[in-house]
């Protein structure tokens, strides 16, 4: 990382950056896009630097909580309608290409499209587990709800994702329904 403090804190912070900054960037990118993600990453790690003494030994959930707050502050200044097309574009940009096989491109697109039409809370629940690799208790902490509530949300999200996977799935969120469907 290159912070010249020469003590254990600096080393710990540098190690934390090396291991988790890419994951915070991936989280931020799927919420605000690549252009603004770098600012979210920087703000998140500045909070971590200042509050290093309270960062837990397993820092990812803590970092994601800070990133979530930073994203919320960022959105507050944007006041933009959240469109399905925007969500889908961010997801396409962030998601891995998937295994090389016939039909994967279409299947990937259908899956991401279904994901984009979920409510923000449901999409977040799925991705905190599937992409960020969090256990339900950790993910609930990031989502700001109880573990029980998170598990219910995750269950519903999985059901809705299955239902929404056909290409002609309708949006499930009132705000999202205002957006034009691509394709």
């Amino acid at each position: 990382m290159g912070i010249e403090q020469g003590d254990g804190d600096a080393q710990r912070f540098a190690a934390m950056w090396e291991r988790y900054a890419p994951r915070i960037q991936a989280y931020a990118s799927r919420h605000v896009g690549r252009d603004d993600a770098q600012e979210i990453v920087a703000e998140t790690f500045l909070v971590a630097w200042r509050r290093l003494s309270v960062v837990p030994g397993e820092p990812l959930p803590w970092l994601l909580v800070v990133a979530r707050n930073t994203v919320a502050n960022h959105r507050r200044s944007q006041h933009r309608a959240r469109l399905v097309s925007d969500e889908l574009a961010r997801l396409r940009d962030v998601a891995a290409p998937g295994p090389a096989a016939d039909g994967v491109v279409e299947e990937r697109d259908a899956l991401l499209r279904a994901l984009a039409t979920l409510t923000a809370a449901e999409r977040e629940a799925l991705l905190l587990v599937a992409w960020d690799g969090l256990a339900p208790a950790q993910a609930a902490q990031v989502a700001g709800c109880s573990v029980t509530a998170f598990k219910v949300r995750l269950h519903r999200a999985r059901k809705h994702l299955d239902v929404g996977r056909p290409a002609d799935a309708a949006p499930r969120d009132g705000r999202l329904a205002l957006a034009p469907q691509e394709g």
């Binding site: 991936a26 990118s29 891995a96 998937g98 295994p99 990937r108 690799g133």
Partner: peptide
């Protein structure tokens, strides 16, 4: 295909 298959590959944006 599952969401696990599409987990983002890090680093997503080295320049960023």
């Amino acid at each position: 295909l599952t969401l696990d298959d599409l987990r983002p590959q890090a680093p997503l944006d080295p320049d960023g």
